[in-house]
């Protein structure tokens, strides 16, 4: 579904991604872990071209999205993204946050978009917040809305960039719960996170990144019980 070939990203003289190769299949839940500065967020942000790779290719559904003539706005409609800091639109109500993109991109009529938004809000138990503004919500609520906002576009894949890192500890659970349900529904997911429990439980593959490259990749059981590369062993000894 997504094929990454020799992906490089430099910020000035800082070489953040150094030739990453990976293949994401439909329905997989890829969990990316690694120390900070390892390039995992940059890797994720390259997948929907929020960061422009400086080398290599990314193919999405048989299309080279790093080609200069690729219509990036069209491609992004099919890739939902959830951010560490939620990034709900502060000037819009919750309902408007969810319906803005489907309506303005003419994928749905106003009424249809509202109806489907209300269904999604019910799914995460926040339908009574439809007319509230983001400023009045807790972090956990904001992140659940942010997930729903992406889902309203019916994406083929969902990218999560440390979705629980900015949350108070007691709110992490409610967000992970929504993500688990999403995983069970069959969504293809790529998740950058520090939640090892989530990686173990939900991930179909766990990927360890360090120094701008993928150092190890395995199914969760092997990954945690039988890590091979020394950097991963060291990393796991610190975080587990």
């Amino acid at each position: 579904m997504i094929i990454i070939k020799e992906l490089h990203k430099k910020f000035g003289g800082n070489h953040v991604l150094r030739g990453v190769n990976y293949h994401i299949h439909p329905g997989e839940k890829i969990v990316v872990v690694g120390p900070s500065g390892s390039g995992k967020s940059t890797f994720l942000r390259c997948l929907n071209l929020l960061e422009r790779p400086t080398g290599g290719e990314i193919w999405f559904d048989g299309q080279n999205i790093t080609a200069p003539k690729a219509d990036i706005n069209e491609i992004r409609r099919h890739m939902g993204m959830v951010f560490q800091h939620f990034n709900l639109f502060n000037n819009l109500t919750i309902l408007q946050n969810i319906t803005l993109a489907p309506v303005k991109l003419k994928l749905m009529g106003e009424e249809e978009a509202k109806e489907s938004a209300m269904k999604l809000l019910q799914r995460v138990g926040l339908s009574e917040k439809a007319d509230a503004y983001p400023a009045s919500l807790s972090g956990g609520q904001k992140q659940r809305i942010a997930i729903v906002r992406s889902l309203a576009m019916n994406p083929k894949v969902m990218l999560f960039d440390e979705p629980t890192s900015a949350l108070d500890p007691e709110m992490v659970g409610e967000v992970l719960e929504v993500m688990k349900e999403l995983a069970e529904s069959g969504m293809t997911m790529v998740v950058v996170t520090h939640e090892m429990g989530f990686a173990r439980e939900v991930g179909t593959k766990v990927v360890f990144m360090d120094e701008g490259n993928i150092m190890e990749e395995n199914d969760p059981r092997e990954f945690f019980n039988n890590p091979k590369c020394p950097r991963l062993q060291e990393f796991l000894s610190k975080v587990l």
Binding site: N48, L50, N73, E74, R76, R77, M79, G80, M81, F83, H85, F86, N87, L88, F89, N90, L100, A101, K104, L105, A146, R149, S150, M153
Partner: peptide, 15 residues
């Protein structure tokens, strides 16, 4: 205006 607002908009496919 926080850069994240723009990123969220663009990530949804808005130009």
């Amino acid at each position: 205006v926080d850069k994240g607002q723009t990123e969220a908009g663009r990530s949804l496919g808005l130009n």
